[in-house]
């Protein structure tokens, strides 16, 4: 048996023939294992979904209770048609997991999206030993070295002190990034209310239920607040909201964006961002290469992103690298 016989790419996503299931399929399939709740990995309409309890909850919040035919909670190792399946934390967003497959002594870990930097909004990454490590390559260029997120949040607070009349509006994706940014702001000592866009409410509430402390959150839609009330306040919203007339209710908005892409000036400028905050929930180049070194798999398979650079690195370090060129996964989830 070759590694390919246990897992290989198909147009719908990664498929495991002996287990007869897909991992993070991009189209409806009879049986799906889902690593995490971001829209490009977790889609509605499958026959059956296996995922962590939090990912199942998040899918229900986003797509409604009947997002799948049947659901199975991933709790401890389980056998699926003779394939031993293990979900281990990925450190990416709340509920995110890596999926380990074991069959006839062969082990493959599908890491999904993952991050090694501590994140107050989710459980930390843990290694799942493997023969094949399937990794993303979103930030797989040596220019990506994400700074400590605490320092980025300090820059936000410094800007608030320098521009106390401006509403600081930070773009952050609804699942994971928004809650991480809020938790970081709280950890930096900001105890005033943080105002959130309606699109973030359900997921923020869910994080609080799961024990993530986000402090005093208020809707950024309150009718009783005037433009002046928002001066010097923090508003968190999905980035797409900055294209909508909603922005106009705030005092001289200063637009920020929390994303790993903000490390690249042209990207930040093209988005019209005044305050780029380099906060990423993916591995950067040092963490990605370190992870591969630590796991020391026989092969590295690359799902999506900047695979050329990672392949070059594999070549330089005498590793077997293989691009899967999966389509349908975004660099960062547009929502």
């Amino acid at each position: 048996m070759r590694f390919d016989d246990l897992l290989h790419p198909t147009p719908q996503g990664l498929y495991c023939p002996p287990g007869d299931f897909f991992i993070d399929p991009v189209a409806p399939v009879p049986r799906a294992l889902v690593t995490h709740g971001h829209a490009d990995h977790a889609r509605a309409g499958h026959g059956a979904v296996m995922a962590t309890a939090q990912t199942l909850d998040i899918m229900a919040i986003r797509y409604g209770k009947d997002f799948t035919g049947t659901r199975q909670l991933a709790e401890g190792p389980v056998e699926v048609n003779g394939v031993r399946v293990t979900f281990g934390p990925a450190g990416h967003v709340l509920g995110s997991a890596q999926i380990g497959l074991e069959h006839r002594g062969m082990r493959i870990t599908v890491s999904g999206d993952y991050c090694r930097h501590p994140n107050p909004a989710c459980a930390p990454w843990e290694p799942l030993p493997c023969d094949v490590f399937v990794t993303e390559a979103t930030f797989a260029l040596p220019v990506f070295r994400h700074p400590a997120p605490e320092g980025e949040v300090d820059r936000l607070l410094t800007s608030l002190a320098a521009f106390p009349d401006r509403t600081h509006m930070i773009g952050a994706y609804a699942l994971g990034k928004a809650q991480r940014v809020i938790a970081l702001i709280r950890a930096a000592g900001w105890d005033r209310p943080i105002y959130i866009h309606g699109a973030l409410e359900a997921l923020c509430r869910y994080h609080v239920e799961q024990g993530v402390d986000l402090g005093d959150l208020r809707p950024a839609t309150g009718k009783d607040l005037t433009r002046a009330d928002y001066a010097g306040q923090i508003v968190i919203a999905p980035p797409s909201a900055f294209n909508s007339p909603w922005v106009r209710r705030f005092a001289d908005p200063l637009i920020g964006f929390a994303s790993g892409w903000m490390q690249i000036r042209n990207r930040a400028k093209a988005r019209g961002v005044e305050l780029p905050l380099v906060i990423s929930d993916h591995v950067d180049w040092p963490d990605l290469t370190r992870t591969v070194e630590e796991l020391a798999p026989e092969e590295v398979w690359i799902t999506h992103g900047r695979e050329d650079a990672l392949l070059r690195w594999c070549e330089m370090t005498q590793r077997v690298g293989r691009p899967l060129r999966l389509v349908g996964y975004e660099d960062e989830v547009p929502e």
Partner: peptide, 26 residues
């Protein structure tokens, strides 16, 4: 830095000084 990795990075970043600043060992 490996020349090929540098070239890939420069392609992505689009500015020589910025690429060097980002890629140079910290």
């Amino acid at each position: 830095v490996d020349a090929e990795l540098f070239a890939l990075s420069y392609d992505f970043v689009g500015d020589l000084a910025e690429t060097m600043a980002l890629i140079w060992p910290e």
